[in-house]
């Protein structure tokens, strides 16, 4: 029943709390009281801080919360990402983690009266859960996990849309070329915000899913008519990078998924 609820979309007023329970970040926080504060006080490794800082002000036009330079949203995000580099020093910071950390921050922000304490800790443990439970290995050194998922996506495509599969094979387009941003950012930089929330409702409930990627591929490259304007590798890549708004629209996408 929870699964069905998540497919139908979690009501906005409950979303922040629901994501905490679904992701397990609430339990993690309770098991590790004080851990975030401890990390938060440490200075952090300069090589990671430098990259995070450079990224912060050029991130997320997707939500007003992060727009103002040095504002709450950006400050919070900095602290969450910095804490993660201290929590997993061997992984450090990957640029795709910033949007991953920011998405749950939005619905969770309103939790509690003290957003800077509770909301921030929740956001941190949520990031930990995503990186360790939902997308393990995605952000570590060799990107092996994402390459493997690329291969899985591609073999599933064979069943879902043989036309798209054949086209991509013929043009020798490695899945890494088009699915890296989709998967590493869990579609948060691809889809419109309303669709991101719906996809993430399902993501937290069911784990990473290949279905969204498959729907996007099928509806972009899945018929000979659509392939007419994708004669070369470059044209295909351009098309996959600039997807039709129609197929990314919340109701259409979720229904197809």
């Amino acid at each position: 029943q929870i699964r069905l609820r998540c497919q139908k979309g979690i009501p906005p007023s409950l979303r922040g709390r629901a994501w905490q329970y679904l992701s397990g970040s609430k339990v993690k926080l309770e098991q590790n009281i004080g851990k975030f504060d401890e990390l938060d006080l440490l200075p952090g490794e300069p090589k990671w801080l430098d990259v995070i800082e450079r990224d912060l002000h050029r991130q997320f036009p997707f939500h007003e919360m992060f727009v103002s330079r040095g504002g709450h949203g950006q400050q919070d995000l900095f602290r969450v990402l910095k804490a993660y580099t201290l929590y997993r020093p061997e992984e450090g910071y990957c640029q795709a983690q910033a949007p991953i950390a920011a998405v749950p921050d939005v619905p969770m922000h309103r939790l509690g009266t003290h957003p800077l304490s509770l909301g921030l800790q929740q956001a941190f443990w949520c990031l930990v859960q995503i990186c360790e439970k939902y997308l393990p290995g995605y952000y570590s050194e060799k990107l092996e996990a994402i390459q493997l998922d690329g291969q899985i996506l591609f073999s599933l495509l064979h069943k879902v849309s043989p036309v798209a599969y054949k086209h991509l094979s013929k043009q020798k387009i490695d899945p890494i070329l088009y699915m890296t941003e989709w998967f590493m950012c869990a579609f948060s930089r691809t889809l419109p915000w309303s669709s991101v929330l719906r996809v993430w409702d399902m993501f937290f409930c069911e784990g990473r899913s290949f279905r969204v990627g498959l729907v996007l591929l099928k509806h972009t490259l899945g018929s000979s008519d659509k392939l007419k304007s994708c004669q070369g590798q470059y044209e295909t890549m351009e098309r996959l990078r600039a997807l039709s708004p129609k197929i990314m629209q919340e109701t259409f996408l979720v229904q197809e998924v």
Partner: peptide, 25 residues
């Protein structure tokens, strides 16, 4: 200011030169 690129972005430019047309992908 651009977002940090994850994966790859694409741009096309066409140059009409005297001796040839050059298309950059």
């Amino acid at each position: 200011e651009s977002l940090p690129t994850v994966g790859c972005s694409f741009f096309t430019q066409i140059l009409n030169l005297e001796v040839a047309t050059v298309k950059f992908e």
